[in-house]
Every structure is written in structure tokens, then in C-alpha cells.
Simulated assay, not measured.
Amino acid sequence: MLIENGTRRNLLFVGTGITISHVEGLSQASVERPSSIEAAARHLSFTKAANELPVTQAAVSCHILTLEDHLQVQLFNRGNQKVSLSAPGEELVEAVTLSLWHMAAAFDSVQGGRGPSP
């Protein structure tokens, strides 16, 4: 979810309760739902990704289509009832997964290693 606040935007990552600010020049499409593409890639299914995240399958599909449109590249190869990652999709998912891992580690670190708060 994106919350406008002057020249900065606050980004709430689905399922984390964490808000991250980013500079106005960054595209909402490129940072709004990194968890959608990561989950869809891990499951190779938009439906399974949606079941994991608190969103619908249509929302996951829309997030990915919006990102593909923004980047002007196909991230997933779509077949009859299945998806696979394209080469650019594999590259992006690797970076997104690493970024999410770094964020989780940083959150854990600043909480003194005690894990997320309830």
C-alpha cells in the first residue's frame, strides 16, 4: 500500500507491517509489491502466491502485469494453468529475494534478534 506524504512516499510491505520510505523518483510499480513476484516465483503459481499473501489471485496477477508493463519485459511465461520464470524474471526474482532477505535480517537485528513483534 502506498501512502502519499509530500515529496516522499511510504511503502507498506504486505504481511510485514513495516513501512519503508522511498524517494519520489522511484516508480510505485517497481517497489509496491515485491512479495507478490517473490511468492509467485517460488510457487510458480499466482493462486498459491495469493493464498500465502493476504491478497487475491487477481491482485497478484495485476501486480505482476503492472510491473511487466512498467519494465516493458515479460517476467513470467504463462501456459495452460502454469507459469514459469523468463530469463529477466529469474534475474529480478533473485534480486528481490535477496533484498527481502536483507530486510528481514535487518529487522531482526534492530530488534535484538528476538524476531518480529506480534
Rank of each mutant, 00 (worst) to 15 (best):
T47L: 10
D69R: 12
V31I: 15
L65D: 05
H43F: 15
E91S: 11
E38W: 11
S21G: 13
R9A: 02
L65E: 09
A29L: 09
H63P: 03
G15N: 06
E68A: 00
L65N: 11
E90N: 11
L44A: 12
I64D: 02
L85W: 07
E94Q: 09
L65Y: 11
T19G: 07
S36F: 13
F46L: 10
K82Q: 14
A104C: 01
N80F: 13
S86C: 02
Q28M: 10
L85K: 09
M103I: 14
L67E: 03
S61E: 06
T16R: 09
Q74A: 07
G115Q: 06
N5G: 01
V31A: 10
S36E: 09
A41T: 03
E52A: 07
V93P: 00
L71S: 01
H102K: 13
A40K: 09
T66G: 01
I18E: 12
G79N: 09
V60S: 04
Q111Y: 04
P54I: 03
S84C: 01
Q81P: 00
T7W: 04
L26S: 12
L2M: 07
S109K: 15
H43I: 03
S109T: 13
L75C: 08
I64K: 08
H22Y: 15
G25L: 13
N5R: 13
I64G: 06
L12W: 14
Q74K: 15
A105V: 10
A95H: 11
P118G: 04
I18V: 15
N51K: 15
L12K: 14
S45G: 12
V14W: 07
L44S: 14
L71P: 04
S61H: 10
Q57P: 00
N80M: 06
Q57F: 05
R8G: 02
A87H: 10
L11M: 14
E91R: 15
T66W: 00
V83Y: 05
G6K: 13
Q74P: 01
G15V: 04
T16F: 10
F76D: 04
F107G: 11
Q74H: 08
N5K: 12
G115M: 05
N80I: 06
V14S: 11
G6D: 05
S117M: 08
H63R: 07
H102E: 11
A39G: 05
P116T: 05
P118K: 13
S61G: 06
I37N: 02
V96P: 02
G25F: 14
H102M: 09
S30A: 15
T66C: 03
F107P: 01
R114L: 06
S86P: 01
F76N: 06
A87E: 12
V96W: 02
D69H: 08
K48I: 01
L100A: 06
Q74C: 05
E52T: 13
A29C: 07
N51Y: 13
K82S: 14
V55G: 01
M103G: 02
A39Q: 14
G17S: 02
F46D: 04
P88S: 04
Q28P: 07
E4C: 00
S99F: 13
H22C: 05
E94V: 05
H70S: 11
T56E: 08
S45N: 11
L98W: 03
D69V: 00
Q111N: 08
P118T: 07
F46T: 01
F13E: 09
A29S: 14
E91K: 15
L92W: 10
E4V: 05
T97C: 04
Q57S: 12
V55P: 01
V31H: 11
L71E: 00
